[in-house]
């Protein structure tokens, strides 16, 4: 392996993805995400659409909601509720891990 074979990327942190990038990265339809933002099911970032920035957490949430809707034919409101609960579960599990209890 030579140095030429090694790819170097940019590290993105925090709210770093544009609306289009989030959709592309999550294989989401733009209309789908827009509808969910407008209906308050997906946390709306401030500003106009071109100013919106999303974090890796937002990407995970969008993918999760999409798969819940697809796998279970869940109505969007229910998928959002389940996503909320799963995020809370993730946060609790992370606290357990930090406390050495898991």
């Amino acid at each position: 392996m030579t140095d030429d074979d090694i790819l170097t990327g940019f590290v993105l942190e925090g709210r770093c993805l544009t609306f289009e990038e989030l959709c592309a990265a999550g294989a989401l339809e733009q209309d789908w995400l827009l509808r969910h933002i407008e209906e308050g099911l997906f946390p709306a970032p401030g500003g106009t659409r071109s100013e919106w920035r999303f974090s890796a957490l937002g990407l995970a949430r969008a993918r999760r909601m999409r798969s819940l809707e697809r796998d279970f034919e869940a109505v969007p409101e229910l998928a959002a509720l389940v996503a909320d609960m799963l995020e809370e579960l993730d946060a609790l599990r992370a606290r357990l891990r930090v406390a050495g209890l898991e």
């Binding site: 392996m1 790819l7 170097t8 990327g9 940019f10 590290v11 942190e13």
Partner: peptide, 21 residues
């Protein structure tokens, strides 16, 4: 792909590789 992992990465970050999509 061989990807360079910069020192200091942590969970929740995204590494963007231009032109590899």
């Amino acid at each position: 792909l061989n990807v360079k992992i910069p020192k200091g990465v942590h969970a929740g970050q995204i590494i963007r590789l231009a032109g590899q999509g």
